[in-house]
């Protein structure tokens, strides 16, 4: 019997877009809740955002099974950290852990595209953006996933963040107020949903600031 089927692949792309914006005293982390495979929608209500610590939230798109494994791994690591140090991990520490975790599987990578958002130890918003094998950078805002090609240039245009090439370095946090940042996030997702078939259904937003964590949803196009 000759093989007449496509070769099996250990990966799938379940789509979805994720965005995070850091401000002087807040951080917004957002993702849509659609999960797809090929041209089919698997479910319209899957959360791509995972709370890793009180002040570190990860939003991930890519291959859901890898993403789930990554989230569970980090959650377990954070539990151990809490047992050993009796405190929550900081966002920059989690950022380094995420990078190491991704690189550990350099030759059979987690097919996961993450942004990690939160507040640093000073209470300043921070966003870390990654590739699948662990290289990362602290930035003022970032988008990842299937709609990132539509979202990222729009954010670049709207936020006019100081260039990372400037010397001496200028702080990357956005000048927007918290409310403006949330509105911007809603706009970019509504726009991405128009053209990206893998983004849609519902938008989930987390806002972190000195008062704590705020969670909200916005409906998106379902077609």
């Amino acid at each position: 019997m000759t093989k007449q089927h496509a070769n099996w692949s250990p990966y799938d792309n379940n789509g979805g877009s994720v965005v995070a914006i850091a401000g002087a005293d807040y951080c917004v982390i957002a993702a849509d809740t659609r999960m797809s495979t090929g041209y089919s929608i698997l479910t319209r209500g899957y959360s791509k955002i995972s709370k890793l610590a009180d002040k570190a939230f990860m939003a991930s798109s890519g291959f859901q099974a890898d993403v789930k494994a990554l989230q569970k791994h980090l959650t377990a690591k954070h539990l151990i950290y809490q047992h050993q140090h009796n405190k929550q991990m900081s966002c920059p520490a989690m950022a380094q852990l995420l990078s190491n975790t991704l690189y550990y599987k350099r030759f059979f990578p987690y097919y996961a595209f993450n942004v990690l958002g939160g507040l640093d130890t000073e209470g300043k918003g921070c966003v870390f953006t990654y590739d699948a094998v662990g290289s990362y950078e602290r930035v003022g805002y970032s988008a990842q996933g299937s709609g990132s090609t539509l979202i990222m240039p729009f954010l670049d245009n709207q936020l006019k963040s100081p260039s990372p090439l400037l010397l001496p370095a200028v702080d990357a946090v956005t000048p927007l107020s918290e409310g403006e940042a949330i509105d911007l996030v809603k706009t970019v997702f509504a726009s991405a949903t128009e053209r990206d078939i893998y983004t849609g259904d519902r938008l989930e937003i987390y806002v972190l600031n000195a008062h704590g964590t705020h969670h909200e949803y916005m409906e998106l196009r379902k077609d």
Binding site: S9, Y11, L42
Partner: peptide, 22 residues
């Protein structure tokens, strides 16, 4: 809930595999 061959998993109010999804 559902699980696929490569571990993709989710919960929903209704699910269907294969052609059923279409």
């Amino acid at each position: 809930g559902m699980v696929s061959m490569i571990g993709v998993n989710f919960e929903d109010n209704h699910v269907a595999t294969g052609f059923g999804n279409h």
